[in-house]
Deep mutational scan, measured.
Amino acid sequence: MDGTRTSLDIEEYSDTEVQKNQVLTLEEWQDKWVNGKTAFHQEQGHQLLKKHLDTFLKGKSGLRVFFPLCGKAVEMKWFADRGHSVVGVEISELGIQEFFTEQNLSYSEEPITEIPGTKVFKSSSGNISLYCCSIFDLPRTNIGKFDMIWDRGALVAINPGDRKCYADTMFSLLGKKFQYLLCVLSYDPTKHPGPPFYVPHAEIERLFGKICNIRCLEKVDAFEERHKSWGIDCLFEKLYLLTEK
């Protein structure tokens, strides 16, 4: 054995408090879109979701699917093309516009009456609605409950000090017999300040354990050449399924 860690023996890093005071403002996230600093976007979609999607959907149609901090995630069109209703929230209007443009979807925009100064973008087909606002303002819009949440790049982007508020927001959107698919990253948080932030299993239990059954479905090596600039040499991604207790 050469000592290389595999996707099945990932350790939890003990120094989980080192990132707790890290803060990125909404304006800084918007600047990332304006300046093209969106390496977190996956042009081909998320491979773990693609692998498990049909198993999760079980042939159902007409589900309501929520994408927190959606950006221009191509997976939104995957669900819409399968007959589901997609709702996303994203602070960057540019990111939302790029989604519709890159997916060749016509759309309209209208003000969100409950949140002055914000807009919702709706596909002409009517099954994709993307709200351009802070996720913490979203419950004011009465958008209803969801059958499924796809959380990739959301919890790991939320400032650590806001995670409890974020989890409570997610709980307010969950319908009966929900499936909450959650991706988190595992790396040494003493070497990279984030975002994306390190979210250990214990944190998921703390945030969601009282209401959800929590199961880790898969762990994969997600390290890429660009991650060397973070000062790390190891990065794993974990896919969790959260269901109603």
Rank of each mutant, 00 (worst) to 15 (best):
E237G: 03
K60L: 09
T190E: 13
P160G: 03
G3M: 13
T6Q: 03
I149S: 02
D188Q: 06
E12Q: 13
W78G: 02
V34N: 04
K60A: 08
S85C: 14
T16N: 10
A167F: 05
N159C: 11
I149W: 00
L53S: 09
I232D: 03
A222D: 04
R82S: 11
Y107S: 03
R82E: 10
C165W: 14
A39S: 12
A154S: 12
T101M: 06
E11M: 03
L182T: 03
H84K: 00
F171V: 10
G144L: 07
F208A: 03
Y107M: 09
F197M: 03
D233E: 15
T113I: 04
E109H: 03
L24C: 14
N35T: 13
H41C: 11
L24D: 04
T4M: 14
L53V: 09
L241R: 04
D81G: 04
K164V: 06
I128G: 00
F100T: 01
P196I: 07
K177A: 11
I214P: 01
Q30C: 13
F136M: 04
A39F: 13
W33E: 04
G231L: 07
L181A: 13
L63T: 10
R226Y: 12
G175V: 11
L182W: 00
P68R: 00
K176H: 07
I149Q: 01
E203K: 04
N213L: 02
E224D: 07
P111H: 15
C234R: 08
N213F: 10
S186R: 06
P196C: 01
F67P: 01
Y180R: 00
L174Y: 06
E224R: 06
K191Y: 10
F67R: 00
I128M: 06
R163H: 06
I143H: 12
P139G: 11
F99W: 11
S7L: 08
L217W: 14
I158L: 09
F171T: 14
D81F: 01
S85G: 03
S123P: 00
K51R: 14
D162S: 13
W29P: 05
N213A: 14
D233R: 15
K177F: 10
Y187A: 04
T38V: 05
I10S: 09
A157N: 09
K50F: 05
Q47I: 15
Y187Q: 02
E244G: 11
D54F: 04
I232V: 08
S134L: 01
A39H: 08
D162T: 08
V199T: 06
V89R: 01
W33C: 08
F56T: 08
R82V: 07
I149C: 11
D151F: 02
V156K: 02
V184A: 09
G175T: 15
G71C: 03
E114C: 12
E114I: 02
E205P: 03
R152Q: 06
L8R: 11
Q30S: 10
L181G: 07
L207M: 14
A202F: 15
D188P: 06
T6W: 13
T16W: 14
T141P: 05
D221M: 04
V34I: 15
W33K: 04
D151G: 00
R226C: 15
L181W: 04
T169C: 09
Y13M: 14
E75Q: 04
I204R: 00
W230D: 07
A80P: 02
P160W: 06
D81K: 05
T4A: 14
A157Q: 09
I143P: 06
W150M: 08
K32P: 03
L48R: 05
L94P: 05
G45A: 09
S229F: 13
R215L: 15
L241C: 13
L69D: 03
P68S: 01
E218Y: 12
E11Y: 13
G209A: 13
I112G: 05
D81V: 03
G209F: 05
V199M: 03
E28G: 13
C212M: 06
Q42G: 07
T101G: 12
E90R: 03
E203I: 14
E102P: 00
L8Q: 03
N142Q: 11
V184S: 14
N142P: 13
V65R: 00
W33I: 05
L181C: 12
F121T: 01
Y131M: 08
C132R: 12
F99S: 00
F121C: 14
N104W: 04
R152V: 13
D31V: 10
G36H: 15
K210T: 10
K72A: 08
A167T: 07
G126W: 03
H201Q: 15
E43S: 08
E75I: 05
F208Q: 01
A39R: 09
V156C: 10
I135K: 01
F100S: 01
T25C: 05
F56Y: 13
S108W: 11
K245D: 06
E203Q: 10
G144N: 03
K119Y: 07
L63W: 11
M76Q: 01
N21W: 11
C70H: 02
L24W: 08
V34Y: 07
E90S: 06
A157D: 15
K145W: 04
K164S: 08
F208H: 00
Y166C: 01
R226K: 13
T4G: 13
T4W: 13
D162R: 08
Y166L: 01
V74G: 05
D233S: 14
R215T: 11
T16L: 12
K191L: 12
V34W: 06
S61A: 14
C133D: 00
E109V: 08
G88I: 01
W33N: 02
L241S: 10
G209I: 03
Q22N: 15
W78M: 06
L26P: 12
G231W: 03
N127E: 12
G153D: 15
Y198K: 15
F171C: 10
E225G: 09
T16E: 13
L138P: 00
F136W: 11
T141L: 11
L239T: 07
G175F: 09
K122F: 07
S108L: 13
A80K: 02
A80N: 14
G194S: 07
V120S: 08
M148A: 10
H192P: 02
Q103S: 10
G194Y: 13
F223N: 12
I232P: 04
D54I: 03
K145Q: 09
E75G: 04
Q47P: 14
G83T: 02
M76W: 03
F171W: 13
E12H: 11
V220F: 05
Y198A: 08
D221E: 12
K176M: 08
L8W: 07
N142A: 12
L69T: 06
P200G: 15
P193G: 10
C70W: 03
S124A: 15
K50Y: 11
S61P: 12
N21K: 13
K245A: 10
K77W: 02
V120A: 10
V199S: 02
V87F: 11
I135F: 00
G194M: 07
E225Q: 15
G175N: 10
L235N: 11
R226G: 10
G83D: 02
T141G: 08
N159I: 02
F67V: 08
E43V: 10
D162K: 05
W150L: 06
